[in-house]
Design a binder for these strands. Structure first.
Lengths: 109, 109
DNA sequence: TTCAACTACTTAGCGATACCATGTACCAGT
DNA sequence: ACTGGTACATGGTATCGCTAAGTAGTTGAA
């Protein structure tokens, strides 16, 4: 999708992942394929893992290590209370930006 | 609005400014106050000027220097053809991201 | 058994962008 | 002379996504 998308994902990708995790614990590789399946075909694997490290360090998710049948053990991430709070704020920020942009698109000054 | 907004503006602020400039040439200081008036109260002045330098170097805008009655001369930016093309692409990228996010918000997997 | 392919996670270095802080400069009113 | 509004510029910082490469375990085909 190119450079524009790369820049636009900054700040939103984290929210996207948090949203994916709500009521649906998942591990890195799974999240990457999920994202790709939703059209983010060019998401770099390393990006997702780095993001997961970040949100873990920020205390937004709980982590549990589980064995896999076909590869190294998985690190399963689940959204915790603080993560839900962060996600709420994300949606607020997103809504604000989204509304401004839609207004601009309609030619609203 | 905080750190979340700062990150989210990366990639979108440029589009916002390009959108503001469509059919409406403006100078830096004016753009800054316009943005603040539209709710982006925390936009740093330096950010806008740096962005304007950037889009000028990318050839998205034409610049004209005009004297001001109350201060140093203004640099008036107007969107050119290439800028309109870039703005189109911006809206495409934005639409894609926006749709994905709205789907996520509705709980769509 | 060796090798490719898939699963699964990690990390060092890079580029782009917004922010902070500060500085320059011009003008008006007090 | 000083303050405040107008107008632009810049050097350094932090964040975040990408690139590229590596480590490791499993499976199945050659």
């Amino acid at each position: 999708m190119g450079k524009q998308m790369t820049e636009m994902l900054k700040g939103t990708l984290e929210g996207i992942v948090l949203a994916l995790l709500t009521g649906n614990p998942a591990y890195g590789y799974e999240i990457t394929t999920l994202l790709r399946g939703q059209g983010f075909t060019e998401i770099a694997e390393g990006t997702v893992y780095a993001l997961l490290v970040r949100i873990e360090q920020k205390g937004l998710v709980d982590v549990e290590k589980r064995p896999s049948e076909k590869g190294p053990p998985r690190k399963v991430y689940s959204l915790n209370e603080q993560g839900e709070k962060e996600l709420d704020e994300f949606w607020n920020t997103w809504s604000f930006l989204s509304e401004r942009l839609e207004q601009l698109r309609k030619g609203g000054k």
